[in-house]
Design a protein around this nucleic acid. Sequence first.
DNA 1: CGTAAATTTGAATGGATTCAAACGTGGTGG
DNA 2: CCACCACGTTTGAATCCATTCAAATTTACG
Lengths: 238, 238
Amino acid sequence: MKRRAICTDPSWVGRADCVHCTIRNRVLFADLTPDELNQVLLVVDDLVFKRGSMIYRQGEAGNALFTIRRGIIKLVRETPDGHQRIVRLMSVGDVAGIEVAIGSPYKHSAIAIGESQLCRIPVTVIERLDIKHPHLARQLMVRWQRSLDNADRALVEFSTGPADARVARLLLFLSSLTHDGRCADIGRQDMGAMLGISTETASRVMADFRRRGLVEETGDGERCHCNVDILKQIAHSG
Amino acid sequence: MKRRAICTDPSWVGRADCVHCTIRNRVLFADLTPDELNQVLLVVDDLVFKRGSMIYRQGEAGNALFTIRRGIIKLVRETPDGHQRIVRLMSVGDVAGIEVAIGSPYKHSAIAIGESQLCRIPVTVIERLDIKHPHLARQLMVRWQRSLDNADRALVEFSTGPADARVARLLLFLSSLTHDGRCADIGRQDMGAMLGISTETASRVMADFRRRGLVEETGDGERCHCNVDILKQIAHSG
DNA sequence: CGTAAATTTGAATGGATTCAAACGTGGTGG
DNA sequence: CCACCACGTTTGAATCCATTCAAATTTACG
């Protein structure tokens, strides 16, 4: 119910260097030629957001969409009873704020969970390229479908069944984002808001998992190692 | 957990008559000229599905998408623990199976809740038109975003808060589909599967609403009249 | 008309929430 | 540099809401 004012300005890394982008094959402009890319990158900013800072706000007339290069972003929407619910988490290669491509205001607030790096792509770029690049339209559709998949997943996996199964599924999802078995250790409040359970329940389940050795904190406190096999059993149990 | 085999064949009304379609301004081909429409309608079938019949099945390689002309469709997905969850309800003007437009298999099973009328549009039509019609691409994007909105809504409104608030929100949603204040009376099982509550709870809440005079069955048993104002209060309460 | 399916209602159980308090931690200003 | 405050997390105990299981009742349908 409390409203907090996090609106830290992002730090500007530079103009995006799409041509040498390490995740170029995973982003919107995958099908463009280097020449075309060079036109684009003049207005695409490469930004770093500190943890907790807001990238855009629900309801604002959006003039840009964002490709996530690093970190995890939460899309938050207000529930009818005034609480906040995390609608989905986005990670490397995902596009946040895609709705601006059809002239819609932002449908959620986007907030960086950990420190994150994003490319800010003005809608004008999309509109300009759209005319001569059927490929881009297709890439956009693929992103839309990916968002839709994630949305459905949020419902079917993260909002269904007992609390321990939901937490297990969330941990497995976070593990799947990294390829080293470790997973981002997101806060208990965010867990609750994502899973539709209270903060306390999220904390209790995690404490229980820790006692049972299913998750182990790594030194830094930012990530944790989890026992995927047993978590899968819990995730699939009714 | 039980699997039932409903696969009633749809009845064929005829080739679609897009030019005279009563909801043409609400469908995918809104921006095409009559001439272009005439090319299209040769392969677009106008079908009627009986209540409970399956329109397509999750996982199938889809070769068509569907515009809903009449009725309510449920998109169903299996949960990790083997139950079935309704991911969202679709109504007039919505496009079911849009994922086939990017070559994806169907992500859900689509089932008619009441008797429904749909236009079956082969993917080939989309692919053919796609090349010369930027408008169509845009229309598709708009549909994708609409599906995404509905998905988010399913999470934030229908999967959050106490059972009575969820039921109230669902009734309000169903009321908003018709413009005469009456709303489709969907079964208690579907209510449960949509709201993430048990069939019994859905039944109990509805019985309670009936006793309090918030919903009244109209004679036919297919629709009911509901007191929107009081339902809104319940919907917004924590 | 008879059977299967869906709905309704009851009673007991269990899981999650709520409220409260203690604990740890990070950041700020003195 | 340390004290202090704010914030998030953890844990406990009581309550409550929804589920589960069961049985009765109604509805749908061949």
